[in-house]
C-alpha cells in the first residue's frame, strides 16, 4: 500500500514540478557538451599522459596569468597524479625562483624552488593581477574545476546521481576554451571583452588563451586546441581533486564490503525473526 502511494506521490511530483522546469529552461543550445573523461564513472582514474600534457599547457600558457595557490611542486610526484618521479618534480621546482626570507640581514631573497614550495603565483596580489589584466581577476586554478558547473534542471539532476556525473566543471572549462567564436550578427561586444559561446552572458574578459600548435607535445598527441583544452581540463580536475583515484578505488572496496555485510545481516535477521509472526 505504501509502495503504491509512493509511486503516486512521485508521479504527482514529477507532473507538478516538471512543467515549470521545462518552461524555465527554454533553449539551451549553449550548454557545454558532456565529454567522456578517463576519470569519470565508478572505475575512473586519471590518465598520467594526459595530466603530464595538461601540466605542460598549464605551465606554458595558463600559469602566466592564473595562480594555483593550493598546488605544490611535491604534488607532481604524489601517487594518483601525473606520475613524475621525485627527481623530475625536483627538476621542475628548481626551474622556478621562489621568494624566501627574511635572511640574517632582514631581507627577502630569491632561491630555486624546492618540493615543499607552493606553485609561484604570477602576480604578487589580486590588485596587481587586476591591473595587468584590464581590471579582471584571473581566478585561482587550485579548485576551479569543482567551482564551475553547468546548469542542470529537473529531472536531469536526479539522473546525474545515478550516472555519477561529477564532471560539470571540466566540461564547462573544456567548452569555454573551445568556445571562442565570432559573435552572432548584431551582438555588440564591449571593449576589453571577448565573445565566448559558453561563458554566462557570452562576454568574457579573458582573450582566447590558446590556439592550435602553441604548445609542443612530445608524445605524438596532435597539438590541437581541442587536445590542449581537454588535457588542461583534466589537469585542473586533478588539481582540484588530487585523491580522486584513491577515492574511487577505496569506494569500490567499501561498497563490496557493505554489500556482503548487508547480505549476511539480512539472513541473520531472517533467522532471528523466523519464529515470530510480524
Amino acid at each position: 500500500m505504501i509502495k503504491r502511494s509512493i509511486l503516486f506521490g512521485a508521479v504527482a511530483a514529477a507532473l507538478l514540478l516538471g512543467a515549470p522546469a521545462r518552461a524555465a529552461e527554454g533553449g539551451h543550445d549553449d550548454l557545454p557538451h558532456r565529454e567522456s573523461w578517463s576519470f569519470a564513472g565508478p572505475f575512473g582514474s586519471f590518465d598520467q599522459g594526459q595530466l603530464q600534457r595538461g601540466f605542460k599547457v598549464f605551465r606554458e600558457v595558463c600559469a602566466s596569468c592564473h595562480s594555483a595557490n593550493f598546488f605544490y611542486f611535491r604534488n607532481l610526484s604524489q601517487p594518483g597524479g601525473p606520475g613524475f618521479s621525485e627527481a623530475q618534480a625536483k627538476a621542475v621546482a628548481s626551474e622556478y625562483q621562489i621568494t624566501d626570507g627574511p635572511n640574517d640581514q632582514g631581507e627577502m631573497f630569491q632561491r630555486p624552488g624546492r618540493l615543499s614550495d607552493q606553485w609561484p603565483a604570477p602576480f604578487p596580489n589580486d590588485q596587481a593581477a587586476r591591473v595587468a589584466n584590464g581590471g579582471a581577476l584571473p581566478p585561482d586554478f587550485s579548485v576551479l574545476a569543482k567551482a564551475r558547473a553547468s546548469h542542470v534542471g529537473f529531472p536531469g539532476f536526479i539522473l546525474d546521481a545515478f550516472t555519477q556525473y561529477q564532471e560539470g566543471g571540466v566540461d564547462y572549462i573544456h567548452a569555454l576554451l573551445t568556445g571562442y567564436v565570432d559573435p552572432p550578427e548584431g551582438t555588440k561586444v564591449q571593449p576589453g571583452l571577448h565573445y565566448n559561446k559558453y561563458f554566462p552572458g557570452h562576454q568574457i574578459a579573458m582573450p582566447k588563451p590558446i590556439s592550435d600548435g602553441q604548445v609542443e607535445y612530445t608524445d605524438g598527441t596532435p597539438a590541437t586546441l581541442d587536445n590542449y583544452s581537454r588535457d588542461v581540463s583534466a589537469f585542473m580536475m586533478w588539481m582540484a581533486e588530487p585523491h580522486l583515484d584513491a577515492r574511487k578505488r577505496i569506494g569500490f572496496q567499501v561498497m563490496i564490503f557493505l554489500f556482503v555485510f548487508a547480505g549476511l545481516l539480512y539472513f541473520t535477521k531472517k533467522k532471528v525473526w523466523k519464529d515470530v509472526a510480524h
Partner: peptide
C-alpha cells in the same frame, strides 16, 4: 539485528555519495 541491517543498508547509500558523487549535495 533489524536496526543494524537498516544501518548497514543506509551506510551503502551514504558510501555511494561519499565515494562516487561527493559534491552532488554541495554547491560549486
Amino acid at each position: 539485528v533489524k536496526d543494524i541491517f537498516g544501518m548497514v543498508v543506509f551506510l551503502l547509500f551514504f558510501s555511494y555519495f561519499i565515494f562516487y558523487i561527493p559534491n552532488y549535495m554541495g554547491h560549486p
